[in-house]
Design a protein around this nucleic acid. Structure first.
Lengths: 216, 216
DNA sequence: GGTCGTTCGTTCGGCCCCGAACGGTAGCGG
DNA sequence: CCGCTACCGTTCGGGGCCGAACGAACGACC
């Protein structure tokens, strides 16, 4: 990673003191988010240790406290960790399993849903894949161009569109899904046995409850 | 939602029988994913009940079993619920809190990080916001154009770029963050007290462990 | 003082993503 | 049979998103 000609130290950064800006003295010493030495990219600071993650969350509250805002740390932890985990997983899957096949996460999910349910009307497919119909149109364009799916208009109701995998698409899924699922297992194994059930039910509660929260 | 001139029933769909295709008889009765009557959009089938979510996951295994694939259901549940929850939360926040201000999730996160840490160099900002530097360039273009952040080149090292909020940006965050955090709390409340701690530690374990899993 | 290897942020091409607007289709009620 | 209304998938504009390639800046070493 770093070897010969020597980098260019660069990290004389570290968020310095902002007290002048906020007009308040900083009551607690906060650790800078920094990240000396090479972050591969976007992973949110390379190789975080557990302490770092927790410390970072504490820093947030300290900072918010400075500005006189009483934020709900637990809530923040829940939401931020869900989102971080999700993007980390997506990226992991994309680079490890999907990239060799030139597939994006969404393209894969779409193919996978079709693989499971064999044939589907567009709006259901969009819902199952978790994207809007507008997005699905573009995704299908890509997949169709690559010969992985086919579109077919219904004869009795010409508004409807049925989508299904081609043989190539079917073969592709049969080839990569085992690897995908194995990788899923590896990720899930990062969670302790004690926590796993709670993680699943907790997240399910959110998925189930959010629509109701949407229109309040 | 449905009223006068009457819709157009449409749902004579339901994934029918695929046994012809797979060449295997369907051993278990599976519930169709369907979703009769109006899905608002993309939410992954409108208003799912808990039983539906669990049943759907079981259906997956049943289907995989048909094709002779022994998938890890627990792993699937973990990964899929993380991702579903994350996108649901993102969408919820975007429509409820961010849309009125014309902000995307990423734009908000970027501003928020700057709000917490006051001034930051671009690569750190990208890492904290969980995006690549390439993406950050575009996001900063948008935010700068709207007068919410400023770019400033370092004098001593002209490769580096410091980003900070403008007064407008600061005011914006102070205005919307309380609402954002309140909404976070509402979402977090969907998780039972018994599960909440496990959810957080479980997800943290994933975030922490994934980078190591990346290069195996 | 000129390489050389590294790092910085930007640019590029391709894809995903959404909401809104749009034609086309379908059923109903008058 | 003709509006009306609702639904279908597509199109459009604007943004986010990534990896790869790029030029500029920099430090180290000969």
């Amino acid at each position: 990673m770093s070897a010969a000609g020597r980098p260019a130290p660069t990290d004389r950064s570290a968020p310095a003191d902002r007290s002048a800006r906020t007009g308040r003295a900083a009551p607690v010493a906060r650790t800078a988010p920094a990240d000396p030495a090479a972050a591969s990219d976007a992973t949110g600071s390379s190789r975080p240790r557990l302490d770092d993650l927790i410390q970072a969350e504490r820093d947030i509250v300290a900072r918010l406290d400075e500005v006189g805002i009483d934020a709900d740390l637990d809530a923040f932890s829940v939401i931020s960790n869900i989102y971080r985990a999700a993007t980390a997983i997506r990226r992991h899957m994309e680079t490890r399993v999907l990239a060799p096949e030139q597939l994006s996460w969404t393209a894969f999910v779409t193919l996978w849903v079709l693989w499971i349910w064999d044939e589907m009307e567009a709006r259901h497919l969009a819902a199952e894949a978790g994207i809007t119909k507008g997005t699905l149109t573009g995704v299908l364009d890509t997949l169709e161009r690559r010969g992985l799916v086919t579109r077919r208009r219904h004869d009795d109701d010409r508004r409807l569109l049925s989508v299904r995998l081609t043989d190539d698409g079917q073969a592709l899924l049969a080839r990569i899904y085992p690897a995908f699922n194995a990788e899923e297992a590896a990720v899930a194994d990062l969670v302790s046995d004690a926590d796993r059930a709670s993680v699943v039910t907790g997240l399910r509660d959110i998925v189930r409850g959010l629509p109701d929260l949407d229109d309040t």
